[in-house]
């Protein structure tokens, strides 16, 4: 095999130093098919959200492993709630969307959920019309990914997606999506001890 060919061989490229840009259109068609497939097999909004979320979880579990390996020189295990959330905000988000998350907000103690990620213009909602009255579209897929990551990092949690409307602008185009995280009580107890 001559040298020039070797240079262009995909197997010989360094594993970790690739840019992960892919074509949005191509990806959207694939994603659209996936959503249609999921949608055909359910008969109510809850089951649809549940199904998307489960698919997301399977991805999240794998993504955590993969991101740990790629993102850091010396992969380490996150022990604190704050650290794992920051890890998701920076590294996981970068891996999926190519940029860090827009916002990570801690909710007051009296709320049922503990934290939420805030996002506008997510790819999963970019081309979709809201099918159900709650306007949720495909956001449960991403909340499933977050849940998968948290679960596999040993922070069992319930993650749900909700649309957040600002009072000053009522147009449905400017709605943001929040991914609300509710940790298992055991996680919080452990976090207090550390």
């Amino acid at each position: 095999m001559d040298l020039k060919q070797t240079k262009h061989n995909i197997v010989d490229r360094p594993f970790s130093k690739e840019s992960h840009q892919i074509n949005l259109s191509t990806f959207t068609f694939l994603f659209s098919q996936f959503v249609q497939y999921s949608h055909e097999r359910v008969d109510n909004p809850e089951a649809f959200a549940e199904r998307l979320s489960r698919s997301g979880q399977a991805i999240g579990v794998r993504l955590y492993e993969y991101t740990c390996f790629r993102a850091e020189k010396t992969p380490k295990r996150e022990c604190k709630v704050q650290d794992i959330l920051l890890f998701i905000k920076k590294e996981i988000w970068k891996m999926i969307f190519g940029r860090p998350a827009e916002g990570l907000v801690k909710l007051p103690d009296d709320q049922p959920q503990h934290y939420y990620f805030l996002e506008a213009n997510q790819f999963e909602n970019q081309f979709t019309t809201a099918l159900y009255a709650n306007g949720l579209k495909c956001a449960p897929f991403v909340s499933g990914i977050i849940k998968g990551v948290l679960d596999s990092a040993n922070f069992p949690a319930v993650v749900m997606a909700a649309t957040i409307t600002h009072n000053d602008q009522d147009s449905s185009m400017d709605k943001k999506v929040g991914y609300f995280i509710k940790f298992d009580p055991s996680v919080l107890q452990r976090d207090e001890k550390i």
């Binding site: 259109s25 959207t28 994603f31 996936f34 959503v35 249609q36 081309f127 979709t128 019309t129």
Partner: peptide
């Protein structure tokens, strides 16, 4: 092509939703 065909909730050959705001 960009806005209608990529929408997973659009059925091909069916009328386009009026509420597809974008």
């Amino acid at each position: 092509c960009d806005d209608i065909l990529k929408n997973p909730f659009y059925d091909l050959e069916q009328p386009i939703y009026r509420h597809d705001k974008t």
